[in-house]
Design a protein around this nucleic acid. Sequence first.
DNA 1: AAGTTGACGGATG
DNA 2: TCATCCGCCAACT
Length: 127
Amino acid sequence: MARPTASRGGGAGEDAHIREVHRAIYTVVRRIPRGRVVTYGQVAELAGIPGRARLAGAAMRASPRKLGLPWHRVVGKRSKTLAQVNILDPIGSAVQRHLLEEEGVKLSDSGGIRLADYGWLPDVDGR
DNA sequence: AAGTTGACGGATG
DNA sequence: TCATCCGCCAACT
């Protein structure tokens, strides 16, 4: 019963075979304070894999909802939000905006997030 | 095994 | 400021 292909697929224990890198990334994302945002590049750096922003993105895309990660707090540096990037899924991007606004993150006039104001800086914040 | 994809980011026009 | 292109590299087909 188990699944012959034991690779992907949804089911319990799915996150059990996730690579350490992914786990490190999820740990970082979990630490993002409410009302703050972090770029993928930052997440990668904090996870111990500087310069691998793309990998951080891949890990997030593959992250099981079951983990309940604050995925909406992770944004692209230039892309402001998922909204500008994933044009094929405008619904999801709208959800991200909504969740951020609920946390008090205000968007700039151009619809982007002001990283200077809401970007999370662990060293400065002391957490 | 080899080619394609992509929740990125910097450089360029 | 916005649109495109390019490099990086793990995951997917």
